[in-house]
Amino acid sequence: MNIFWLTGDLSHLAAIVILLLKIWKTRSCAGISGKGQLLFALVFTTRYLDLLTSFISLYNTSMKLIYIACSYATVYLIYMKFKATYDGNHDTFRVEFLVVPVGGLSFLINHDFSPLEILCTFSIYLESVAILPQLFMISKTGEAETITTHYLFFLGLYRALYLVNSIWRFYFEGCFDLIAVVAGVVQTILYCDFFYLYITKVLKGKKLSLPA
């Protein structure tokens, strides 16, 4: 494990926990895309099926379980406990336009044509675009709460750190996963516009609002 890998994991964890605590503390999920959170729950479920077949380390297993539990808890809060605060009218991204092509692609391009590997590949492709419903919602309402932008920042930062980790592992360990790297590049590119707004607005104490 290297520093980019560890800080990537911690950044990912920070994002998930920030979102969960924001919803819990404010008793509201206003401004959060429920569809996006459903996609992330699907991402974790399909990627971590290897929990049932292989053991890597205590760290690996615990983090996977925490990610899965937090993502399901978030979905529960949005669609059950604080359903009344869910802003469904603005959460109108058509997720089937992501899930269907991504499903097809994972059948066509994968490392091994086995159920577990296809599902894992599916989760990597899906994760790279799973933020789109949330970004779409922000573009529709034209603004985001500052705490929501912190969530997005850590979620984006995690994948960028993982890319550096991939380069590190390629040079020092000789291992390389093209699928994960390409998906990671796509995922990071999708955050660039947001990163720009986060640095130029939110970090200077302003609210993230888009021009009408």
């Binding site: 890998w5 490392h111 990597i124 291992c175």
Partner: peptide, 10 residues
């Protein structure tokens, strides 16, 4: 290995 990198990552 090619895809070995992914197996121990999250």
């Amino acid at each position: 290995g090619r895809e070995a990198a992914r197996k121990d990552e999250l």
